[in-house]
Amino acid sequence: MAEQETDKGRRCMLVAASTVAGGIAVGVTAVPFVASMLPSERAKAAGAPVEADIGKLAPGERMTVEWRGKPVWIVRRTPEMLDSIKQSVDKVADPDSNKAMQPRYAANEFRSIKPEYLVLVGICTHLGCSPVDRFAAQAEAFAADWKGGFYCPCHGSLFDLAGRVFKNRPAPDNLIVPPHTFLSDTKILIGVDQGAEGAKGAA
Protein backbone atom coordinates (compact mmCIF):
# COMPACT_ATOMS: atom_id res chain seq x y z
CA MET A 1 0.00 0.00 0.00
CA ALA A 2 2.69 2.46 1.06
CA GLU A 3 4.47 2.06 -2.21
CA GLN A 4 1.40 2.97 -4.22
CA GLU A 5 1.72 6.49 -5.61
CA THR A 6 -0.93 9.11 -4.96
CA ASP A 7 -2.90 9.96 -8.08
CA LYS A 8 -2.81 13.74 -7.64
CA GLY A 9 -4.91 14.49 -10.69
CA ARG A 10 -7.67 12.22 -9.42
CA ARG A 11 -7.48 13.67 -5.91
CA CYS A 12 -7.66 17.22 -7.29
CA MET A 13 -10.67 16.32 -9.42
CA LEU A 14 -12.44 14.77 -6.40
CA VAL A 15 -11.73 17.82 -4.22
CA ALA A 16 -13.00 20.17 -6.94
CA ALA A 17 -16.11 18.08 -7.59
CA SER A 18 -17.04 17.79 -3.91
CA THR A 19 -16.39 21.52 -3.39
CA VAL A 20 -18.71 22.41 -6.25
CA ALA A 21 -21.38 19.95 -5.08
CA GLY A 22 -21.07 21.18 -1.49
CA GLY A 23 -21.21 24.79 -2.61
CA ILE A 24 -24.37 24.17 -4.60
CA ALA A 25 -25.89 22.37 -1.62
CA VAL A 26 -25.10 25.30 0.69
CA GLY A 27 -26.50 27.78 -1.84
CA VAL A 28 -29.73 25.83 -2.28
CA THR A 29 -30.09 25.37 1.47
CA ALA A 30 -29.88 29.15 1.89
CA VAL A 31 -32.95 29.67 -0.32
CA PRO A 32 -35.64 28.82 2.27
CA PHE A 33 -33.88 30.96 4.88
CA VAL A 34 -33.66 33.98 2.57
CA ALA A 35 -37.23 33.40 1.38
CA SER A 36 -38.50 33.26 4.96
CA MET A 37 -37.58 36.92 5.34
CA LEU A 38 -39.86 38.06 2.49
CA PRO A 39 -43.23 39.61 3.39
CA SER A 40 -45.54 36.88 4.69
CA GLU A 41 -48.90 36.04 3.13
CA ARG A 42 -50.55 37.92 5.99
CA ALA A 43 -48.49 41.05 5.27
CA LYS A 44 -49.34 40.81 1.56
CA ALA A 45 -53.04 40.46 2.33
CA ALA A 46 -53.13 43.56 4.54
CA GLY A 47 -53.36 45.99 1.60
CA ALA A 48 -57.15 46.46 1.42
CA PRO A 49 -58.55 49.82 0.20
CA VAL A 50 -59.54 52.39 2.82
CA GLU A 51 -62.51 54.72 2.76
CA ALA A 52 -62.11 58.33 3.92
CA ASP A 53 -64.95 60.68 4.86
CA ILE A 54 -63.98 64.18 3.73
CA GLY A 55 -67.32 65.77 4.63
CA LYS A 56 -65.92 67.54 7.68
CA LEU A 57 -62.64 68.65 6.09
CA ALA A 58 -62.52 72.47 6.10
CA PRO A 59 -60.75 74.46 3.34
CA GLY A 60 -57.02 74.75 4.02
CA GLU A 61 -57.00 71.70 6.29
CA ARG A 62 -55.44 68.28 6.06
CA MET A 63 -56.59 64.88 7.29
CA THR A 64 -54.64 61.62 7.48
CA VAL A 65 -55.83 58.09 6.94
CA GLU A 66 -53.79 54.91 7.16
CA TRP A 67 -53.50 52.80 4.02
CA ARG A 68 -51.13 49.82 3.84
CA GLY A 69 -49.50 51.06 7.07
CA LYS A 70 -48.61 54.39 5.47
CA PRO A 71 -50.09 57.83 6.11
CA VAL A 72 -52.28 59.10 3.27
CA TRP A 73 -53.06 62.80 3.35
CA ILE A 74 -56.13 64.47 2.00
CA VAL A 75 -55.76 68.25 1.73
CA ARG A 76 -58.67 70.52 0.86
CA ARG A 77 -56.99 73.34 -1.01
CA THR A 78 -58.20 76.95 -1.02
CA PRO A 79 -58.05 79.07 -4.21
CA GLU A 80 -54.95 80.81 -2.78
CA MET A 81 -53.27 77.46 -2.27
CA LEU A 82 -54.05 76.44 -5.85
CA ASP A 83 -52.65 79.78 -6.97
CA SER A 84 -49.35 79.07 -5.16
CA ILE A 85 -49.01 75.86 -7.19
CA LYS A 86 -49.04 77.89 -10.41
CA GLN A 87 -46.33 80.14 -8.98
CA SER A 88 -43.98 77.31 -8.07
CA VAL A 89 -43.75 75.86 -11.60
CA ASP A 90 -40.18 77.05 -12.23
CA LYS A 91 -38.97 76.03 -8.77
CA VAL A 92 -39.99 72.38 -8.84
CA ALA A 93 -38.06 69.56 -10.46
CA ASP A 94 -40.92 67.86 -12.34
CA PRO A 95 -43.66 70.51 -12.85
CA ASP A 96 -45.57 68.51 -15.44
CA SER A 97 -45.57 65.27 -13.44
CA ASN A 98 -43.74 63.42 -16.20
CA LYS A 99 -42.45 60.75 -13.84
CA ALA A 100 -44.95 58.07 -12.93
CA MET A 101 -45.42 59.16 -9.32
CA GLN A 102 -49.21 59.37 -9.76
CA PRO A 103 -51.98 57.54 -11.59
CA ARG A 104 -52.59 58.86 -15.10
CA TYR A 105 -55.78 60.66 -14.05
CA ALA A 106 -53.76 62.74 -11.56
CA ALA A 107 -50.94 63.71 -13.94
CA ASN A 108 -52.24 67.22 -14.34
CA GLU A 109 -51.54 70.76 -13.14
CA PHE A 110 -52.79 70.16 -9.58
CA ARG A 111 -51.97 66.44 -9.45
CA SER A 112 -55.51 65.56 -8.43
CA ILE A 113 -58.89 64.42 -9.71
CA LYS A 114 -60.67 67.49 -8.34
CA PRO A 115 -58.39 70.54 -7.97
CA GLU A 116 -59.75 71.18 -4.49
CA TYR A 117 -58.77 67.79 -3.05
CA LEU A 118 -55.15 66.64 -3.00
CA VAL A 119 -54.51 63.02 -2.06
CA LEU A 120 -50.90 62.06 -1.30
CA VAL A 121 -48.94 59.27 0.34
CA GLY A 122 -47.32 61.23 3.19
CA ILE A 123 -43.92 59.58 2.82
CA CYS A 124 -40.95 61.54 1.52
CA THR A 125 -39.49 60.05 -1.65
CA HIS A 126 -36.02 60.56 -0.21
CA LEU A 127 -35.74 58.22 2.74
CA GLY A 128 -39.29 57.70 3.90
CA CYS A 129 -39.89 60.30 6.61
CA SER A 130 -43.31 61.87 6.81
CA PRO A 131 -43.08 65.57 5.79
CA VAL A 132 -44.91 68.16 7.88
CA ASP A 133 -47.37 70.89 6.85
CA ARG A 134 -46.07 74.35 6.20
CA PHE A 135 -49.20 75.63 4.48
CA ALA A 136 -48.83 79.33 5.35
CA ALA A 137 -47.10 81.58 2.80
CA GLN A 138 -44.45 83.17 5.01
CA ALA A 139 -40.67 83.36 5.35
CA GLU A 140 -39.31 80.07 6.72
CA ALA A 141 -35.84 79.08 7.91
CA PHE A 142 -35.53 76.76 4.91
CA ALA A 143 -36.88 79.20 2.28
CA ALA A 144 -37.30 82.95 2.59
CA ASP A 145 -39.95 83.22 -0.17
CA TRP A 146 -42.03 80.26 0.98
CA LYS A 147 -45.46 80.04 -0.67
CA GLY A 148 -46.75 77.08 1.31
CA GLY A 149 -46.31 73.34 1.00
CA PHE A 150 -44.66 70.48 2.85
CA TYR A 151 -41.29 70.32 4.56
CA CYS A 152 -39.46 67.11 5.37
CA PRO A 153 -37.83 67.50 8.79
CA CYS A 154 -35.35 64.70 8.24
CA HIS A 155 -33.33 65.96 5.30
CA GLY A 156 -34.91 69.25 4.31
CA SER A 157 -36.78 68.32 1.15
CA LEU A 158 -39.51 70.79 0.15
CA PHE A 159 -42.75 70.09 -1.72
CA ASP A 160 -45.36 72.50 -3.00
CA LEU A 161 -49.08 72.15 -2.38
CA ALA A 162 -49.34 69.65 -5.23
CA GLY A 163 -46.64 67.47 -3.64
CA ARG A 164 -44.10 68.45 -6.31
CA VAL A 165 -40.51 68.35 -5.07
CA PHE A 166 -38.41 71.53 -5.21
CA LYS A 167 -35.18 71.50 -7.20
CA ASN A 168 -31.87 70.89 -5.48
CA ARG A 169 -33.32 69.03 -2.52
CA PRO A 170 -32.42 65.50 -1.43
CA ALA A 171 -35.73 63.97 -2.52
CA PRO A 172 -35.58 62.98 -6.19
CA ASP A 173 -39.29 62.64 -6.94
CA ASN A 174 -42.67 64.20 -6.31
CA LEU A 175 -44.75 62.76 -3.48
CA ILE A 176 -46.76 59.75 -4.59
CA VAL A 177 -50.45 60.17 -5.40
CA PRO A 178 -52.04 56.83 -4.47
CA PRO A 179 -54.76 55.26 -6.59
CA HIS A 180 -58.01 56.75 -5.36
CA THR A 181 -61.53 57.38 -6.46
CA PHE A 182 -64.43 59.57 -5.38
CA LEU A 183 -67.32 57.43 -4.18
CA SER A 184 -69.38 60.57 -3.63
CA ASP A 185 -68.73 64.26 -2.94
CA THR A 186 -67.78 63.45 0.64
CA LYS A 187 -66.23 59.99 0.35
CA ILE A 188 -62.90 58.93 -1.14
CA LEU A 189 -61.77 55.34 -1.53
CA ILE A 190 -57.99 55.01 -1.28
CA GLY A 191 -56.31 52.10 -3.02
CA VAL A 192 -58.69 51.73 -5.96
CA ASP A 193 -58.23 53.51 -9.28
CA GLN A 194 -60.75 55.98 -10.63
CA GLY A 195 -63.06 54.08 -12.94
CA ALA A 196 -61.80 50.65 -11.86
CA GLU A 197 -64.15 47.72 -11.29
CA GLY A 198 -63.61 47.74 -7.52
CA ALA A 199 -64.68 51.39 -7.29
CA LYS A 200 -68.08 50.68 -8.81
CA GLY A 201 -68.57 47.67 -6.59
CA ALA A 202 -67.64 49.61 -3.47
CA ALA A 203 -69.85 52.52 -4.50
Partner: peptide, 13 residues
Amino acid sequence: STWIRGDFVVGDA
Protein backbone atom coordinates in the same frame (compact mmCIF):
# COMPACT_ATOMS: atom_id res chain seq x y z
CA SER B 1 -35.57 47.02 1.37
CA THR B 2 -38.86 45.08 1.37
CA TRP B 3 -36.89 41.92 2.10
CA ILE B 4 -35.07 43.61 4.99
CA ARG B 5 -38.34 44.90 6.48
CA GLY B 6 -40.27 41.71 5.80
CA ASP B 7 -43.22 43.98 5.06
CA PHE B 8 -43.98 47.00 2.93
CA VAL B 9 -43.57 49.24 5.95
CA VAL B 10 -41.50 48.96 9.13
CA GLY B 11 -43.68 46.79 11.34
CA ASP B 12 -43.95 43.77 13.57
CA ALA B 13 -41.99 41.55 11.16
